[in-house]
Measured scan of single mutants.
Amino acid sequence: SSQSQGISSSSTSTMPNSSQSSHSSSGTLSSLETVSTQELYSIPEDQEPEDQEPEEPTPAPWARLWALQDGFANLECVNDNYWFGRDKSCEYCFDEPLLKRTDKYRTYSKKHFRIFREVGPKNSYIAYIEDHSGNGTFVNTELVGKGKRRPLNNNSEIALSLSRNKVFVFFDLTVDDQSVYPKALRDEYIMSKTLGSGACGEVKLAFERKTCKKVAIKIISKRKFAIGSAREADPALNVETEIEILKKLNHPCIIKIKNFFDAEDYYIVLELMEGGELFDKVVGNKRLKEATCKLYFYQMLLAVQYLHENGIIHRDLKPENVLLSSQEEDCLIKITDFGHSKILGETSLMRTLCGTPTYLAPEVLVSVGTAGYNRAVDCWSLGVILFICLSGYPPFSEHRTQVSLKDQITSGKYNFIPEVWAEVSEKALDLVKKLLVVDPKARFTTEEALRHPWLQDEDMKRKFQDLLSEENESTALPQVLAQPSTSRKRPREGEAEGAETTKRPAVCAAVL
């Protein structure tokens, strides 16, 4: 046999249950609850290399294929790409003598399909299967379609040439079993990697079954959420508030809700932002270029202005709740996480202390139980975000031990490091100062900020419009641009040419 590394010779191994799959997660993409704000000051410096380099560890398999027929071997997927077919160049070659004697062998292509993985959001991997055969590759009886790919989820059954000719079961060793999710959700989405997690739940990458488009699904544990919100009269209202707010909003710089499922837990389906959180971008770069800050901040102002015009105060604006559309420097941003939002009543007064301390406005800290506050709290938070983006460190921090965090904020005395700000323009610093004003009545509004000289930049605004146009074009394009080929190089076993392929839609398939 010419099988590559990772293939075992026996096809009769006992199949494990899916609970053996491991679970991976990374930083929070968007969480309903406010958790302790991640610290920006503690960015690790590059460490000196050791005298002796450690040995390379043996790579762990990321997936496993269990053979369902004699003549096929099990495969431990270690590499990122595997070709399957009769050709000797394939990493998994159909060359077992037992297999060659079967009637089905002649229906398999020289290069029938490939399984591979690509880097997705949060640097996690996504597994795909890609059909290159004349007679078809099927996943859970659905045709992939020649020249098309679809994501592979845990426990997928792979069939060759005929939908009933099941050859492998695919085990993704990095994700959960699909069966743990409600059927209504599974009918519409293929669940994938964990993108982030918080005290009350997690955010998962998923794929729409009909279109193969990526989405983010925010899962909120009702049990954990009820415990964490025990002081509230009705904890469920917080989730329902977020859903109702998101459904009503329609702005290019605000995250869109696509679906909602109320089962044992809450499942909020949101558009996916491939670039992750602004927080991670700031930490990764230490600070952002001023031109990049301007492009992002302009969009934040437009989003918050839209919220305020619609009578909504976000109340928890922070870099973790600003998501980026891509890994590119120039990209769209979207505001997310409306769990603490407040729809303005007639009095415009709110007395609930919520939000993240580092970003809270002075009037929030001094008015607990005594007075109210209004939309100006969001403008203060925007000032803190702009400060961080321009400088790479927070204006107020618990680690300045000589003054408490509350006193720093209520006095408006931010930590100004001259040598850092020497590289920032006077106009940018002036806008920061106009937003970090203790008196909410004297603080800049979103309208005033948008009129500030720093943002009178036609090149930046043109760039934003171009990015918007690109997004609109990409969302308007159909996901499947061509029909699967019906040509046949070899006959199917026991049926006429093209008899099955043309009847089945290529579900969740995307043209390369």
Score class of each variant (00 low, 15 high):
Leu249Lys: 15
Asp316Arg: 00
Ile257Asn: 05
Met350Ala: 12
Met350Cys: 05
Glu244Pro: 15
Lys503Leu: 09
Arg287Cys: 14
Gly494Glu: 12
Ile388Thr: 13
Gln299Asn: 11
Gln483Pro: 12
Leu450Lys: 10
Gly498Ser: 07
Ser326Thr: 13
Arg287Val: 14
Ala361Lys: 05
Gln456Gly: 06
Leu249His: 11
Asn285Arg: 04
Lys247Asp: 07
Ala442Thr: 08
Val368Ala: 08
Leu249Val: 05
Leu344Ile: 11
Leu429Lys: 06
Leu365Ser: 10
Pro357Cys: 12
Asn310Lys: 08
Gly392Ala: 13
Phe297His: 09
Asn374Ser: 11
Gly284Trp: 14
Leu332Gly: 14
Gln299Phe: 00
Tyr298Ser: 06
Lys247Thr: 08
Lys281Glu: 11
Cys379Pro: 06
Thr446Leu: 09
Phe396Cys: 00
Thr352Asp: 03
Thr486Arg: 14
Leu477Arg: 09
Asp265His: 14
Lys289Phe: 11
Thr356Trp: 01
Thr358Tyr: 14
Leu360Met: 06
Glu346Pro: 06
Glu363Leu: 01
Gln305Thr: 13
Leu390Asp: 02
Cys508Thr: 10
Pro362Cys: 02
Lys318Ile: 01
Ile268Pro: 01
Met300Tyr: 02
Glu363Asp: 06
Ala371Pro: 09
Glu363Thr: 01
Val420Asp: 03
Tyr296Ala: 06
Gly369Arg: 07
Ser474Glu: 11
Asp262Lys: 14
Asn374Arg: 06
Glu447Lys: 06
Ala376Leu: 05
Gly276Leu: 11
Leu349Met: 12
Glu346Leu: 04
Cys379Asp: 13
Leu288Lys: 03
Tyr267Lys: 07
Lys433Ile: 02
Leu288Trp: 13
Arg504Gln: 00
Lys289Ser: 08
Phe260Ala: 06
Glu495Tyr: 06
Lys441Ser: 15
Trp380Asp: 00
Glu264Met: 13
Leu302Cys: 11
Lys256Ile: 12
Arg375Glu: 15
Phe338Asp: 00
Cys293Gly: 10
His452Asn: 02
Cys331Ile: 00
Ala361Leu: 01
Asn285His: 14
Thr336Pro: 00
Ile254Asp: 00
Asp439Asn: 10
Lys247Val: 15
Gly345Arg: 11
Gln327His: 11
Gly345Pro: 13
Gly372Leu: 11
Glu500Lys: 11
Leu278Val: 11
Asp457Trp: 02
Leu349Ala: 13
Val322Glu: 00
Lys318Met: 03
Thr501Gln: 10
Gly284Cys: 09
Glu320Cys: 05
Thr336Val: 02
Asn374Gln: 08
Glu274Lys: 07
Val282Ile: 11
Tyr306Ile: 09
Asp280Arg: 09
Arg375Ser: 12
Glu398Lys: 10
Val480Ser: 06
Gly275Asp: 03
Ile343Gly: 01
Gln465His: 15
Val480Glu: 00
Val377Ser: 01
Leu386Arg: 01
Tyr296Met: 15
Asn374Asp: 09
Trp380Ala: 00
Phe260Thr: 12
Cys389Val: 07
Arg375Val: 11
Cys508Val: 09
Phe297Lys: 01
Ile333Glu: 02
Asp280Pro: 05
Lys258Ile: 12
Ala303Ser: 09
Lys258Glu: 11
Arg375His: 10
Gln408Ser: 12
Asn259Ala: 14
Ala442Val: 09
Glu471Val: 02
Leu349Thr: 10
Pro357Ala: 15
Ser341Trp: 01
His399Leu: 00
Gln327Pro: 13
Arg351Leu: 07
Ile343Asn: 15
Leu288Phe: 08
Phe338His: 00
Gly284Thr: 13
Glu244Asn: 15
Arg451Gly: 12
Glu493Ile: 00
Leu349Asn: 13
Leu455His: 09
Thr356Leu: 02
Pro357Ser: 15
Asp265Ile: 15
Leu272Ser: 14
Asn310Thr: 10
Val269Asp: 06
Phe279Ala: 03
Asn415Glu: 01
Ser325Ile: 13
Asn259Trp: 09
Ile335Ala: 14
Ala449Asp: 04
Ala449Trp: 03
Lys256Arg: 13
Ser341Pro: 02
Tyr359Gln: 01
Gln483Ile: 04
Glu500Trp: 04
Asp466Asn: 06
Asp459Tyr: 12
Tyr266Ala: 12
Ile335Lys: 03
Thr475Ala: 13
Leu382Cys: 13
Glu346Thr: 00
Arg490Gln: 14
Gly494Leu: 09
Glu471Ser: 08
Glu470Gln: 07
Gly345Asp: 00
Ser348Arg: 15
Tyr393Ser: 09
Val377Arg: 05
Pro484Asn: 15
Lys463Asn: 08
Lys289Thr: 13
Lys281Asn: 12
Glu309Pro: 00
Val368Trp: 14
Leu481Met: 14
Ile245Asn: 14
Leu288Cys: 07
Leu512Lys: 04
Leu477Gly: 00
Ser348His: 15
Pro418Ser: 14
Leu323Ile: 02
Asp378Phe: 04
Cys253Gly: 09
Leu324Met: 09
Cys293Arg: 04
His314Ile: 03
Glu495Asp: 15
Val269Gly: 13
Leu249Met: 03
Cys293Leu: 08
Ile335Gly: 01
Val269Ser: 06
Leu450Val: 05
Lys503Gly: 09
Lys286Glu: 10
Asn374Cys: 11
Ile343Cys: 03
Thr446Tyr: 12
Lys258Ala: 12
Phe464Leu: 03
Ile312Asp: 00
Leu249Ile: 12
Leu450Trp: 05
Val283Asp: 01
Arg315Val: 01
Val364Asn: 00
Ala509Lys: 08
Lys441Tyr: 11
Leu455Arg: 00
Arg492His: 09
Tyr414Ala: 03
Asp378Thr: 00
His308Pro: 10
His308Met: 08
Gln465Met: 15
Gly383Ala: 00
Ser474Trp: 05
Leu386Thr: 00
His251Trp: 11
Pro252Phe: 11
Lys413Ile: 13
Glu271Asn: 14
Glu290Leu: 05
Asp337Gln: 01
Tyr267Pro: 05
Ile409Trp: 04
Leu349Phe: 09
Gln402Lys: 10
Arg488Pro: 12
Pro453Cys: 14
Lys434His: 14
Thr336Met: 14
Lys433Phe: 15
Glu363Lys: 02
Gln299Trp: 00
Ser469Phe: 13
Tyr298Phe: 09
Lys342Tyr: 08
Gln327Glu: 06
Ala376Gly: 07
Arg351Ile: 11
